[in-house]
Computed example of a mutant assay.
Amino acid sequence: MFLYVNDLSSWKNWWIPLNGTQETIKIDSAHVKYNGNTLQKLASFENDSIQFTITDANFNGNSTIIIKSIDNRQSEISWKLNGEVSFKTKFLAFLKGGMQNVLQSDIQQSFLNIENELQKKFLDYSITLNGFETKNAVTYIAIADSTSTTSFDEKRKQNLKKLGEFITKRDLTINGDPFVIFKSRNKESYKYLSCIPVTAVLDSISIDSTMTKGRFDSYLALKTTLKGSFTNRANAWEEAKKSIEKSNYKENKDGLYIEVYKKESKQSPATNVTEIYIPVRKPIIVNEPKKDSLQPTETIQDSI
């Protein structure tokens, strides 16, 4: 929820004062301007709060939205206002028994709109276990990074943008979709390489000091496809790992754990497509004790 509300471009979808003003809204990363009124974001604190100033016909002052995560599927949101109101708003407050009663319905409806938008844009998803297959060899340039899980998408997008600009400047040819190689991952943080595949021979690629380059050979992996918001990636990883445990394959913890970003849309996260590759080892061939020279060999088959 924090990422959605912190993105001012989303406010036109849920904030009541913007209803019916779609043609007159101007939004950038820190301002929303509508019908001569202005909302300015002053600061944001990840998964905690967002601070604003609001100047419009009825209110002029400071505002803080507080977001508290209950679990990975639920958040609690509250809105504090501190400032001056117009005479009209004061009069309405007098008639309705207090300022809270004047603003409460708009704020409650805005919160309900957030819930509906998140349900539509972020929570709907599907996970497909595609099966065990060979992940083809790739040559790539990359930026090494580490970050909290909540900042991961923002950071790897910044890295991929920088790599894309570098590739364009050096006239290199991109050879597939951007991806991430995880060096380590847990619930709190990731260490990873943000990568873009290229067709160039590795030795011919000249990079700057902020980048690295490499190549991995083809390897066996379980491929899983997530369609929907990246907020559901933990569920996709969990289902993939469980499917390996139920099969006769074994997870290869020395191998490469990769996410490939096939399709990515900030406006419509439900249309995102992400491929996950978890390295595995082939089933072990078990030989039955030989009763005679014609005794067959039994091979354990994949059960996924």
Rank of each mutant, 00 (worst) to 15 (best):
K155V: 13
Q158C: 00
L129T: 11
K135I: 00
E84N: 10
L172V: 00
K135P: 00
Q119D: 01
G97P: 09
G83W: 01
I127V: 13
F152L: 13
L160T: 07
D177C: 04
I114S: 11
V138Y: 07
E188C: 00
S194F: 05
F179C: 09
L118Q: 01
F94P: 01
T128K: 09
I143M: 13
S151Y: 06
K135Y: 13
A93K: 04
K120S: 03
I107K: 04
T149G: 04
D171S: 02
N116T: 07
I196E: 13
K90F: 15
Q104G: 10
I167M: 15
D145T: 03
Y125G: 03
R156A: 03
L92V: 00
S126Q: 15
E188D: 08
N101W: 03
V198S: 05
L163A: 12
S184K: 10
P178T: 13
K187C: 12
N130M: 14
I167P: 10
A137H: 07
K90T: 12
L129Y: 09
L160I: 11
L129K: 11
V138R: 02
D124P: 03
F179S: 09
A142Q: 12
E165A: 10
A142T: 02
N130H: 12
E154K: 15
D106Q: 15
I181N: 14
N136Y: 00
T134C: 09
Q119S: 06
N159S: 08
L118N: 00
D124E: 12
V198K: 13
L172E: 01
E154I: 12
N136K: 04
I107Y: 10
L163P: 13
F179I: 06
R156L: 04
N136V: 08
K135R: 09
T150R: 15
I114W: 06
V102S: 07
C195N: 12
V102K: 01
L123K: 10
L95C: 02
V85W: 12
L163V: 02
R185N: 10
S189V: 06
G98W: 05
F91T: 01
E117N: 05
L95S: 08
K187R: 15
F122I: 15
N175P: 01
K135D: 07
E133P: 01
Q108M: 15
I174P: 06
K121A: 01
D177T: 12
V138P: 13
F87R: 10
S148I: 14
L103W: 05
D171Y: 00
Y125R: 11
N136I: 02
F179E: 13
E115I: 14
V198R: 03
I181Y: 14
S151E: 05
T134F: 06
S146Y: 05
F87K: 10
